[in-house]
Simulated assay, not measured.
Amino acid sequence: MSTTPIPPGWKGGFAQSNPAFAYPTPDLSSLEMKDNMDNIKLLTRQQGVKWPEFSWQTIPGDESSRCFQMFSPYISRLGYTDEGRVYSIICPQQGACSPTFGCMNVEVTVTGQRGWVDETTKTFYADMTVEGTIWFSPSSLQEEWVKKAWDIFNKFGLDFPTSKAKAIKVATHKFQDPNHPIFPVSQGETPRFKSPAFARHEDEAWNVGHIDVQIGDIKKTGHKIVDEFNELVMFAFNTASGNMLKQGNTLTWNVWFTQPALVDTDEWETHAKRWRDSIQADHGSPTGPGTQARYFDGTPFKAVDTLELEMKDTMKKEIHQLEKMEVNKIEGFLQKHFEDEL
């Protein structure tokens, strides 16, 4: 770990203000869950996540299918006061591309957080609530079936996921506890699995923490046709991304921090707003690209890998079935609901 001195101004004390906050079983239930944008003016210190190392099983339940991918450097941050109270956690965003839909954006959007940091002991703990959000990037809107569906939805005044504001929402919850939407952000690397050398940064990072969050249901919009279409989009997204947001799958981040730094609240607000309003997958990331998803041995992940494995002992179909399957589902959906418009 890095031993670079921390900047002046650290006071500490918040982590010790309540005995319930302490490890090994921190309890932050006495603190209100705060929105990320509510208290930016109170932030004075931060730890940037230069290496947001993400991992998931591309075939849920099969550990040999686990992939590792670093998201855009510094996309995530932990913001807190001189005393160590956490008031803002910025989380990652990524893109995935489908043969039929083109590129789609995915973000794990923070809806609530609370926590503490102790720079003196290099420890921290936080609680979070998040939801997954999926929406089409500009290039996907030029794909034949997407454009056709978008035009029809517009004609009938139906919401179409063309922006983060209209994104498909996916619920999340604590690992193995679907009745508990609040989950921890804990000290150290995840104990659930071992990470390969290319996904570890112990010689460079100042500290490391981990997040394990499990995927729940797609949130209903209240409109049957929109909900049915959103199910199709999620099918396509999960095919393209290796089941990243498939219900029941668990997403894990080992977040490798740089040393504490001071906060410019105007810059923080701009950074948070940029990610809240969203960049698009087509345009890349303003903080630089992440890495390609890879298996433990370094082999690059491809969407067809998942399809081949899932079909190997049952369906015995060709890899081009991926695109055909998606097209057939979209075509069938449009025929079912909008036959007169085609």
Rank of each mutant, 00 (worst) to 15 (best):
P161S: 13
T221A: 12
T314K: 07
A197K: 10
N105S: 10
T58A: 11
G242F: 11
V304M: 13
F153P: 13
S72L: 02
M104H: 06
E189D: 03
E131A: 07
D277I: 07
Q16N: 13
V110A: 13
A205M: 01
M128G: 09
T314Q: 06
R77A: 04
L322K: 09
K11E: 13
I218L: 13
G209Q: 10
L31H: 06
M70H: 07
F54D: 02
F198Q: 06
T81H: 11
I6A: 14
T190L: 08
G216K: 08
T133I: 11
I6W: 02
F54G: 00
D35M: 01
G95V: 08
P7I: 11
E202I: 01
E189M: 14
L42D: 13
Y125Q: 07
S65D: 11
Q47G: 00
D217H: 11
V304A: 10
G12T: 10
F160R: 10
F14G: 03
Q47Y: 02
T162P: 01
T258R: 05
E53S: 13
K155I: 06
D217G: 03
T287N: 14
Q142E: 10
F14R: 09
D38M: 04
K147S: 12
G84T: 09
T265M: 06
G61V: 15
A199G: 11
N179Y: 04
I6P: 08
V49Y: 00
I6L: 05
F101C: 15
T162R: 14
G242D: 06
A20W: 06
A167F: 03
R294P: 00
Q292S: 09
Q69P: 02
K194V: 08
W145L: 14
W51A: 04
D38F: 00
P286S: 04
P178K: 07
V146P: 08
T299L: 06
A303P: 01
F101G: 08
R114F: 04
V49H: 00
D82Q: 01
F235E: 12
F301R: 09
T291M: 08
K324G: 01
E269W: 03
D212P: 00
V130W: 04
D82H: 00
S64G: 07
L31P: 09
D264R: 03
I218C: 15
Q187V: 01
G188R: 08
D227H: 09
S137W: 00
E341Q: 14
E53I: 00
Y295D: 05
N328M: 09
F136E: 08
P60N: 01
W253G: 09
R85T: 04
S55G: 12
Y74V: 00
S64W: 14
A15R: 06
G13E: 03
F183T: 03
I90T: 11
G288P: 11
I59V: 15
K148W: 05
